[in-house]
Simulated scan of single mutants.
Amino acid sequence: MSVLRIDHVHIYVNNIAEAEGWYKNVLGFIRDESLLFWFTQGGPLVIKNNEAALSLFERKHHSPGHTVAFNIKPSCFHELIEILSLRSIPFTVSDHQVSMSVYFEDIDGNKIEMTSYEYLEASKNIQSYLMSGKL
């Protein structure tokens, strides 16, 4: 499978406004206005500095730790789901309305997200595989 790049990292914070200010003042991150709707709907606040992206989540009951999200081509979801299934690695699929993601954990419990913003193709690809009965 071909991973294109690290897409973003989930950062769990005690106070999103304070964290946003810190990342802006110290590292130059600013809000990604195109994804602000996620935050207004109760999701993460996505901040960027050029191609580097962070998703700020308010820490509720989440222990310290992060999720690394890798960007992949929509066509890679078939291969990913098959690999996870063959290795009995539990996963979940999330439809974020602008992206499709598959979530799972590595051998040490670190959270991994594989995502594609080529939404329509990714959605069709995942659905066709899940409906194929190969799982």
Score class of each variant (00 low, 15 high):
residue 56 L to W: 00
residue 57 F to R: 02
residue 83 I to H: 11
residue 50 N to F: 06
residue 57 F to V: 06
residue 44 P to E: 10
residue 78 H to R: 13
residue 55 S to N: 13
residue 62 H to V: 12
residue 45 L to C: 11
residue 50 N to C: 04
residue 65 G to H: 03
residue 56 L to S: 09
residue 55 S to F: 14
residue 49 N to K: 15
residue 69 A to Y: 06
residue 39 F to E: 08
residue 94 S to H: 05
residue 85 S to F: 09
residue 85 S to G: 06
residue 74 P to E: 06
residue 52 A to R: 11
residue 81 I to Q: 09
residue 63 S to W: 01
residue 92 T to N: 05
residue 88 S to M: 03
residue 48 K to F: 03
residue 74 P to Q: 02
residue 78 H to Y: 04
residue 94 S to T: 00
residue 78 H to I: 00
residue 42 G to Y: 10
residue 81 I to C: 07
residue 51 E to T: 07
residue 68 V to L: 11
residue 71 N to A: 15
residue 86 L to Q: 11
residue 60 K to M: 07
residue 67 T to A: 09
residue 91 F to E: 01
residue 38 W to P: 03
residue 72 I to Y: 00
residue 54 L to S: 12
residue 41 Q to K: 15
residue 51 E to N: 14
residue 61 H to N: 14
residue 93 V to S: 07
residue 70 F to G: 02
residue 86 L to M: 13
residue 56 L to Q: 03
residue 69 A to V: 03
residue 69 A to F: 01
residue 77 F to V: 02
residue 64 P to V: 08
residue 65 G to M: 09
residue 65 G to F: 10
residue 44 P to H: 07
residue 77 F to C: 09
residue 41 Q to P: 06
residue 47 I to E: 11
residue 69 A to P: 00
residue 77 F to D: 02
residue 52 A to E: 12
residue 59 R to M: 01
residue 78 H to S: 11
residue 86 L to W: 02
residue 39 F to D: 07
